[in-house]
Nucleic acid binder design. Structure first.
Length: 138
DNA sequence: GCCAACGTTGGC
DNA sequence: GCCAACGTTGGC
């Protein structure tokens, strides 16, 4: 199982929007970047991801999981763009901020820090575990 | 709201 | 195939 980090602006589609969708989840649509799309294409059912609030919040607020593998993005007719479906698993008891991540040497190599513009990005198991600890997830 | 960084487009 | 112009993202 792989780990990911997915970004969204909370006023456009935030964590509360995803939790409202319940167990059937929601398409992670609208991605128009090849790297991000390729990351989604390699996702498997059950892969876990952090939900990050960009622009506003600037923190990891919850954990989601992939509940449908890559399929055509229903928000466009352009056949280049695919997306997965994701559903909320649980919120982090304590949100982990970008500041916190930047201040943690072990997390300095995260794509979130190195390439802040990539909206769907891989997370290493070590990074995952550490952020879960910072998020006070038992 | 600004703007630096990045990605994409399209003329040559 | 290069690269200038343009558009978008996202931290600040």
């Amino acid at each position: 199982m792989a780990y990911w980090l997915l970004k969204s602006e909370p006023d456009v589609f935030g964590w509360s929007h995803l939790t409202a969708k319940g167990p059937s989840g929601e398409e992670w649509s609208g991605v128009r970047n090849y790297q991000a799309r390729n990351n989604m294409r390699s996702m498997q059912i059950g892969d876990k991801g952090f939900f990050y609030h960009s622009r506003q919040g600037l923190e990891i607020v919850g954990i989601l999981e992939v509940c449908a593998t890559s399929h055509p993005d229903s928000t466009t007719d352009d056949p280049r763009w695919d997306c997965v479906d994701v559903r909320a698993v649980q919120p982090l008891p304590r949100a982990v901020s970008l500041d916190q991540i930047k201040a943690t040497p072990e997390l300095a190599e995260m794509v979130l820090v190195k390439n802040s513009r990539l909206s769907v990005q891989p997370v290493t198991p070590a990074e995952w575990d550490l952020i879960c600890q910072l998020g006070e997830l038992s």
